[in-house]
Design a protein around this nucleic acid. Structure first.
Length: 398
RNA sequence: GCGGCUAUAGUUCAGGGGUUAGAACGCCAGAUUGUGGUUCUGGAUGUCGUGGGUUCGAUUCCCACUAGCCGCC
């Protein structure tokens, strides 16, 4: 028995529609996963995320939850699902990325990474083994291997070295991961392994490998081969959208995604804008996550079917229409641009909450429409029309 | 009515007899891609209250006026 179910239900070119099943939810792909770094999708109540927005899977983050509240507390409270009250699937990032993006002081060794906490400056240590233990305690449905993420403009030599370390860490991640999964009462698990009623899943966690290699295609291929050789339940593309130009990212995806195992989900980490999602799907990606809808929402930037808009702009001061006339989310049905701008300018936190809510609604709805178009064989037309429409606001301003 | 203080950016204020008068906040506009939660980066704005005088030169010194604030009657 496998920990997750995966089947492709339709394809159009490289784009695929599929169904990913975990013990906690059925996830139709392509899917966008809202980011809930610290066990919360910033500004959004789980009630909305579950009902109106209907997210089936969100992210959690090992690095942040490890530092606060800490593994002991989460284990004591029965794992991340019980602690946070989120009943559906969770994918946890391993912490590798944050160690490199958030801390200045770090010491990288073969064993792992020593770093300074961004919260209190204390010295902490993360390794593949420790990351697996933490993620076992969190109890996520999908666990990510502990990797090193080099900068997008990394040289061939740097990238090759980093990639080799990531491969060794991937093997160690898998070895340590398998231990707690194999024992019902393993010390690291917060809850006993359980299958959903009527499911033929194993009830265990799934582990995804991460392909690195920066912008170097030959190294991407090498990383892919080494990762597939170890064998995982799904495969992720890491190290994109970390400073490189957009065509570089699309080029890597175009080369890499079709070579990834067809019988496992493909996950593009940390991406992206609505345009990136469509371009990713077109190249064969099934899963995405990104902070952009909630982070931008918090700072007054809204994504709409006609492109991005900044709620602070004076032109919205007396605009009676919604953020997006084509959006049916509860925010667009109720609140005007003028009122949202007023809330933002007045420093009301509801501005951040409402725009984040709309942004997530737009992202999730867009992915639903993408799935539908792949299923009905009209994805390429959808792609063309969607991308054209995104230009409307920009052109209208010129 | 009398005395005192003040008058400089949208606001609160700094400054100073000599080329393009500053700060903070606000305003305007960008940025944000496996989230260090209100951040970062740019930009615009002034007949220096009005009128007169001194001076080579006044927003700066002097006088009057006006307005505001405080106190007294």
């Amino acid at each position: 028995m496998k920990p997750i179910g995966w089947k492709v239900t339709a394809t159009e070119g490289e784009a695929r529609a599929g169904v990913l099943e975990t013990r906690r939810s059925i996830i139709e792909t392509p899917v966008f996963m809202p980011v809930g770094t610290q066990g919360a999708v910033k500004g959004i109540r789980f009630e909305w995320l579950e009902s109106e927005l209907d997210a089936r899977i969100i992210l959690g983050n090992t690095y942040h939850l490890f530092l606060r509240p800490g593994v002991d507390i989460i284990r004591k409270l029965g794992g991340l699902h019980k602690f946070s009250s989120w009943p559906r699937s969770i994918l946890t990032d391993s912490g590798g990325f944050q160690v490199f993006s958030l801390t200045d002081l770090r010491k990288l060794t073969e064993e792992g990474v020593e770093f300074r906490s961004h919260i209190d400056g204390s010295k902490r240590f993360l390794s593949p083994e420790i990351s697996m233990e933490i993620q076992a305690a969190l109890g996520s449905e999908i666990v990510m291997v502990f990797d090193e993420c080099p900068p997008g403009k990394a040289s061939v030599d740097e990238t090759r070295k980093s990639l080799a370390l990531t491969a060794r860490w991937a093997a160690r991640s898998k070895a340590r991961f398998d231990e707690p999964q194999s024992v019902q009462s393993a010390e690291f698990l917060s809850e006993p392994v359980a299958t959903a009623p009527g499911s033929d899943l194993s009830g265990r966690q799934a582990l995804f490998g991460i392909i690195q290699g920066a912008a170097h295609l030959d190294l991407r291929k090498e990383s892919l081969d080494r990762t597939v050789e170890i064998g995982f339940d799904g495969y992720a593309i890491g190290g994109l959208s970390v400073g490189e130009e957009k065509p570089v990212m699309y080029g890597v995806l175009e080369y890499l995604a079709p070579k990834m195992p067809a019988d496992a989900p493909r996950y593009l980490m940390g991406v992206g804008t609505p345009e990136d999602l469509i371009e990713g799907v077109a190249r064969g990606v099934d899963m995405f996550d990104c902070v952009i809808p909630t982070r931008n929402g918090r700072t007054g930037s809204a994504f709409t079917s006609r492109g991005k808009l900044n709620i602070r702009n004076a032109k919205f001061a007396d605009a009676s229409g919604p953020l997006d006339p084509d959006c049916e989310c509860s925010v667009c049905r109720r609140y005007s641009l003028a009122y949202l701008r007023h809330l933002y300018q007045s420093g009301e936190m509801s501005a951040a909450t409402l725009i984040s809510h709309h942004n997530l609604a737009f992202f999730l709805d867009t992915m639903r429409r993408v799935r539908q178009s792949i299923t009905s064989g009209t994805f390429s037309r959808f792609q063309r029309e969607f991308l054209n429409k995104l230009q409307e606001n920009q052109e209208a301003d010129v």
